[in-house]
């Protein structure tokens, strides 16, 4: 439904390559550095950007992303500030799709309809709400749809053929295939299993398939890029921010360096 996401995947298809989706935590390590990282991502080769909305209790995330969220919260990040980050990014980039990813409570607390309106005004194109399965998302789906924001759903190794239609119904933008049953940043991706899973998904939908969880290196990104429409990298990027500690310039340059390498991997596939 989001024109920006659809245009981006159409352009990737025209180029004959797969895309790189990068995840960073909004406001990590602080608002200013996070804004600089976001601004640098498209130039480094990110085709789509996911911004994490920090939450105290991220039950599907591994240690790296949990800690990143707490760093951001400690630096004063809020849902409103995350929307401000998007608005600021949009001043420098009108084309790169922005997807907000996080948990439902801050969104519910903001007010579902108000959140959709505010997100659209900031320049958000898609939403991934990890703990909001199709069974519970009718209200957000309607509100997001009214603002042309895509609700992007997760499909996982446990999503069987019986359940897949429920997950894919009303999904737009792209489908996020979680390659490992587990938390973010854990486990090892099995390329053969991913290939089979993407084939299975393609039988059920024409929407682009992005694959994430467990991709850490340019080689792994390239392997996924060969079989899916996009590769998603989160934990490895967030780790770079954490490793930079208080050196915020280093955080920006380290993330850029990794994203460039990942983008090269994806483009070489």
């Amino acid at each position: 439904m989001s024109a920006r996401i659809d245009r981006r995947f159409a352009a990737l298809k025209a180029e004959g390559r797969s895309g790189l989706v990068t995840f960073v935590m909004g406001g990590d390590p602080d608002f200013e550095t996070s804004a600089r990282i976001l601004e640098a991502l498209p130039g480094a080769g990110a085709d789509v950007i996911e911004i994490g909305m920090p939450f105290t209790d991220p039950m599907a995330d591994g240690p790296a992303i949990q800690v990143a969220g707490l760093r951001a919260l400690a630096a004063g990040q809020t849902l409103k500030r995350t929307l401000e980050l998007v608005a600021r990014f949009r001043k420098t980039d009108a084309d790169t799709p922005i997807v907000l990813m996080g948990y439902f409570n801050p969104v519910l607390n903001h007010g579902i309809a108000a959140f959709a309106v505010d997100a659209a005004a900031a320049g958000v194109d898609g939403l991934i709400i990890v703990d909001l399965p199709p069974e519970e998302d009718a209200e957000l789906l309607a509100a997001a749809g009214a603002e042309d924001i895509s609700l992007i759903r997760l499909a996982t190794p446990t999503t069987d053929d019986k359940r897949l239609p429920t997950v894919l119904r009303n999904t737009s933008g792209f489908v996020y295939y979680v390659s490992v049953a587990g938390i973010t940043g854990a486990g090892h991706m099995d390329t053969d299993a991913v290939t089979a899973a993407v084939k299975r998904l393609k039988r059920h939908t024409d929407i682009p398939i992005a694959v994430g969880f467990g991709i850490k290196t340019p080689d792994q990104a390239a392997a996924v890029a060969r079989v899916a429409d996009a590769a998603v990298v989160g934990t490895a990027i967030v780790d770079r921010v954490g490793q930079a500690g208080d050196d915020h310039d280093a955080a920006v340059s380290s993330v850029v360096e990794l994203v460039k390498a990942l983008a090269d991997g994806v483009r070489s596939a």
């Binding site: 039950m59 399965p133 997760l154 996982t156 999503t159």
Partner: peptide, 22 residues
Amino acid sequence: GTGHFGDYGGRYVAETLMPLIL
């Protein structure tokens, strides 16, 4: 049938867990 007590309850879990909950 979907686990709601009025507006409360429900199943707000990650997709990986949804099939297990069902």
